[in-house]
Amino acid sequence: MFRTRAYLATLAVAAVLAGCSTGGSSGGGAAPAPASNDGRCEASGADFAIGKQASAALLEQARKGSGSQVARILKPNDAVTLEYNSLRLNLNVDQQGVVTRVNCG
């Protein structure tokens, strides 16, 4: 019983950590071609958005670059659910609306 719980806890932690992908590059450049990953989010494909002003056009460009099916902009203090969605891209912005972080979930 304990081994089963430990195994499930390890799997849960691994799943959460897999979703913690952030971009570290703020270099300017064109958006990469869409990834071919069956609609799953690949945050590195949207790293180009970091440091830019968030907009609907940037969100769509980042969504396509990451290969994700859906995308959203998360502002400070926005209420979000804790479920992980591997098909969703998140653009986290600061108070001024500038993208500070890109991740999947």
Score class of each variant (00 low, 15 high):
1 M>G: 13
3 R>N: 13
3 R>M: 12
7 Y>H: 15
8 L>D: 13
11 L>D: 06
12 A>Y: 12
13 V>H: 08
13 V>M: 11
13 V>T: 15
14 A>K: 00
17 L>K: 13
18 A>M: 10
18 A>T: 06
19 G>A: 13
19 G>M: 06
20 C>A: 14
20 C>L: 12
20 C>Y: 08
21 S>A: 11
21 S>C: 05
22 T>D: 01
23 G>A: 09
23 G>I: 01
24 G>P: 04
25 S>W: 09
26 S>C: 10
26 S>M: 09
26 S>I: 04
26 S>R: 14
30 A>S: 13
31 A>W: 10
31 A>R: 11
32 P>M: 02
32 P>Q: 00
32 P>W: 05
33 A>L: 13
33 A>N: 14
36 S>F: 11
37 N>L: 07
37 N>K: 11
39 G>N: 09
39 G>R: 05
39 G>I: 09
41 C>F: 03
42 E>D: 09
43 A>V: 03
44 S>V: 02
45 G>C: 03
46 A>F: 03
46 A>S: 00
47 D>Q: 10
48 F>S: 01
48 F>L: 00
49 A>P: 04
49 A>D: 04
49 A>C: 03
50 I>R: 15
50 I>M: 05
51 G>W: 06
51 G>P: 03
53 Q>K: 14
55 S>Q: 07
57 A>G: 05
57 A>C: 05
58 L>A: 07
58 L>H: 05
59 L>M: 05
60 E>T: 12
61 Q>S: 13
61 Q>P: 02
63 R>A: 04
64 K>V: 01
64 K>T: 09
64 K>N: 05
65 G>S: 07
65 G>Q: 00
65 G>D: 04
68 S>D: 06
69 Q>L: 11
70 V>M: 10
70 V>W: 14
70 V>P: 03
71 A>Q: 06
75 K>I: 04
75 K>V: 05
75 K>H: 11
75 K>Y: 10
75 K>T: 03
77 N>L: 09
77 N>T: 05
78 D>F: 01
81 T>C: 06
82 L>Q: 13
85 N>Q: 01
87 L>Y: 14
87 L>E: 12
88 R>C: 06
89 L>I: 03
90 N>W: 03
90 N>L: 00
91 L>E: 03
91 L>V: 00
92 N>E: 08
93 V>F: 06
94 D>R: 07
94 D>K: 11
95 Q>K: 15
96 Q>W: 08
97 G>E: 02
98 V>P: 10
98 V>M: 08
100 T>N: 00
100 T>Y: 02
102 V>K: 02
103 N>Y: 00
104 C>N: 04
104 C>T: 12
